[in-house]
């Protein structure tokens, strides 16, 4: 139960998100009334977040770039069907997730990193501490290595678990927002988070003990 208590900490301020949603809706209405250039502001606002989510789902930069572009194209093409029942952000994330999941299902067997290369290396408990003490170049190398391990551990998760852990831990969304995006209950989101963390802890035990 302690883990669940920890992961339910509030990460997002709801009033801020509501304000953001209202601002987005104004822009969306502009686009719907013919000002297509206004879509650029939404791209600029969300491109990094969408890219980040997709990258953490796919662990591949090129794929993430293409899928992020595809997400915005899809959003642009169907913007007239957006009625404002959910926030634009939620709607956009749903598109990005569907696009990514569709891509992942098509490329199930594809692996992006060589696990064999990393298992030979010695990962001590002081790995993260070393990040603080090493020189910049060493730190960068360590970071790269750690990120690769993380990516690999992420790829071992099921798509559902990977999605919720990405949205929660990396993108900082609340359980409620994740539930809206994924289309499940908050309880299911919590459950998936719990099992995702359990799995990651097993994969990354060398770094967290």
């Amino acid at each position: 139960m302690s883990i669940i208590k920890t992961i339910t900490k509030p990460l997002v301020s709801s009033p801020e998100r509501r304000l953001e949603a209202d601002e987005d809706l104004v822009i969306v209405r502009k686009i719907q009334s013919g000002d297509v250039d206004a879509f650029d502001s939404l791209i600029f606002k969300y491109r990094e977040r969408v890219y980040s989510v997709i990258y953490n789902l796919t662990s591949n930069r090129e794929d993430a770039s293409d899928l992020t572009q595809e997400t915005f194209i899809k959003a642009f093409q169907s913007i007239n069907r957006f009625k404002g029942k959910s926030s634009f952000f939620t709607w956009l994330y749903r598109i990005s997730l569907n696009t990514s999941l569709s891509h992942l299902r098509k490329n199930k067997l594809r692996r992006f990193f060589s696990f064999e290369k990393m298992v030979e290396e010695d990962h001590t408990e002081g790995f993260i501490e070393n990040l603080r003490t090493e020189s910049d170049s060493d730190k960068a190398a360590l970071m790269t290595e750690l990120q690769e391990r993380l990516n690999d551990a992420f790829q071992k998760l099921s798509i559902k678990h990977r999605t919720v852990i990405t949205l929660f831990e990396i993108d900082g969304l609340s359980h409620k927002e994740i539930a809206e995006i994924v289309g499940t209950s908050i309880g299911t989101v919590r459950s998936r988070l719990y099992y995702a963390k359990q799995s990651l802890q097993g994969e990354l035990k060398d770094y967290i003990r």
Partner: peptide, 10 residues
């Protein structure tokens, strides 16, 4: 769990 969260947030 906290360390894992920090690790993921990297």
């Amino acid at each position: 769990d906290e360390r894992l969260s920090h690790l993921i947030q990297l």
